[in-house]
Computed example of a mutant assay.
Amino acid sequence: MANNKSAEKRISIAKRNQRQNRFYKSSVRTLTKLYLKNIELFKASQNPTDKEKAKTSLSSLYSLLDKGTKRNVFHKNTAARKKMKLATQLKLIDSN
């Protein structure tokens, strides 16, 4: 329990940051699953529109990772590692 005004403020700031962190992390997980689903769909159908869907979802995923990094939700190396792994998935279907 907070004993003074500054402690109350720190608690409210911590709650705000927790909500923001949860939003970014869960959104990245959700978009990653969607992206991987689009990749699998393209592998099965070889339809160019499916590939465009995958590229679009990758772009939005990159954007969310970069915004999360800017707001210190993700470490910059963590975001770079995630982006590299996702880009590798797209390159694998390009090479096939």
Rank of each mutant, 00 (worst) to 15 (best):
Ala2Tyr: 12
Asn3Pro: 06
Asn4Val: 04
Lys5Trp: 08
Ser6Phe: 02
Ser6Ala: 09
Ser6Leu: 02
Ala7Asp: 15
Ala7Asn: 14
Arg10Leu: 13
Ile11Met: 04
Ser12Gly: 11
Ile13Lys: 01
Arg16His: 11
Asn17Asp: 14
Gln18Pro: 00
Arg19Asn: 03
Arg19Thr: 10
Gln20Cys: 09
Asn21Ile: 02
Arg22Tyr: 11
Phe23Val: 01
Tyr24Val: 01
Lys25Thr: 02
Lys25Ala: 01
Lys25His: 10
Ser26Gln: 08
Ser26Ile: 08
Ser26Gly: 11
Ser27Gln: 05
Val28Leu: 02
Val28Gln: 08
Arg29Ser: 08
Arg29Ala: 06
Arg29His: 03
Leu31Ser: 10
Leu31Met: 06
Lys33Asn: 13
Leu34Ala: 08
Tyr35Ser: 05
Leu36Trp: 10
Lys37Phe: 04
Lys37Ala: 04
Asn38Cys: 07
Glu40Arg: 00
Glu40Asp: 06
Leu41Pro: 01
Leu41Cys: 13
Phe42Lys: 15
Phe42Glu: 03
Lys43Phe: 11
Asn47Gly: 03
Asn47Pro: 00
Asn47Ala: 09
Asn47Ser: 07
Thr49Trp: 15
Thr49Met: 13
Asp50Trp: 07
Lys53Asp: 05
Lys53Ser: 10
Ala54Thr: 10
Lys55Glu: 14
Thr56Asp: 14
Thr56Glu: 15
Ser57Gly: 14
Ser57Asn: 11
Ser59Cys: 12
Ser59Gly: 14
Ser60Trp: 06
Ser60Asn: 14
Leu61Phe: 07
Leu61Thr: 13
Leu61Pro: 09
Tyr62Trp: 15
Tyr62Leu: 15
Tyr62Glu: 12
Lys67Met: 02
Lys67Asp: 13
Lys67Ser: 04
Gly68Asn: 03
Thr69Phe: 08
Thr69Lys: 13
Thr69Arg: 01
Lys70Leu: 10
Lys70Gln: 12
Val73Glu: 08
Val73Trp: 08
Phe74Thr: 05
Phe74Gln: 03
His75Gly: 15
Lys76Thr: 12
Asn77Phe: 13
Thr78Gln: 14
Ala79Asn: 06
Ala79Gln: 07
Ala80Ile: 14
Ala80Thr: 07
Arg81Lys: 13
Arg81Cys: 04
Lys82Cys: 04
Lys82Arg: 14
Lys83Val: 07
Lys83Pro: 03
Met84Gly: 10
Leu86Cys: 01
Ala87Phe: 12
Ala87Val: 00
Thr88Glu: 15
Gln89Phe: 01
Leu90Asp: 01
Leu90Ile: 03
Lys91Asn: 00
Lys91Cys: 04
Leu92Met: 05
Ile93Gln: 01
Asp94Arg: 02
Asn96Pro: 01
